[in-house]
Amino acid sequence: MGTGSKKFLLSKGLDNYFIGVYNAYKFIGRFFKEAFKSPFHFREIINQCFEIGLKALPLITLTGFITGIVFTKQSRPSLETFGATSWLPSLISIAILRALASLVTALICSGKVGSSIGAELGSMRVTEQIDAMEVSAINPFKFLVTTRVLATTITVPILALYCGFVALLGSFVNINAHEATSFISFFEHGFDTITFLDIFTSVTKSIFFGFTIGIVGCYKGYNASSGTVGVGRAANQAVVLSMFLVFIEEVVIVQVSNWIRLY
């Protein structure tokens, strides 16, 4: 019997889609099951945090700094129209700490870290390194997936806070070049309007972003197939899917935090 006559429940595309969703949920469920069970591989988690932080740090520094400068430059003319340039530090702080820092960090980490995890695990899958762990009585899911997802979940919020700080520095450089504002005065004005909820929301968002980047990268890499083509596909899909999910999460979390702000 040829494959053409194979029966599908709905259609080939829909069946594959729902199977994919089911497998992804199973993967996430397994992560939570393994994450709270010993052994915990603390050393590997720290190694991965260090790896992820080191990989993304230069790019986050550069991008954060430039974001701060550009956003300040673009916002200045609008505020000048109303003679309200003194509001620049507040405006920039709100924009950066509420939205930009976590989003920019997540997008950079999706590209830099997500692809790297997808490619690394994909390559380990197709060269049977994951099977080699399994036959040596080592739980590859626990050692490779759990550690990496925990590492991204821990590291991305730290990187986001760092990105926010660097972006504010960039903004300060631009403002200082126009008005002789002191460093302390800039930050005092900037943080006047920032509430605990802003920081809390930003960190919470980053935790979700970090988890998403880690789990998507691991899922795509761990389930890679078809040799080197599969590795490339896993890396690519890890980036595209994690970026897409980051934007969806951004919208949802912003909406939820706005409701909290209202009440």
């Binding site: 390559s123 380990m124 060269t127 049977e128 390194q129 080699a132 040596s136 009585a137």
Partner: peptide, 16 residues
Amino acid sequence: LRLKIGFSFQNSALYD
């Protein structure tokens, strides 16, 4: 049981 079985892979499967 796996600890009692050694498995030598076709492409060695050494950890890169």
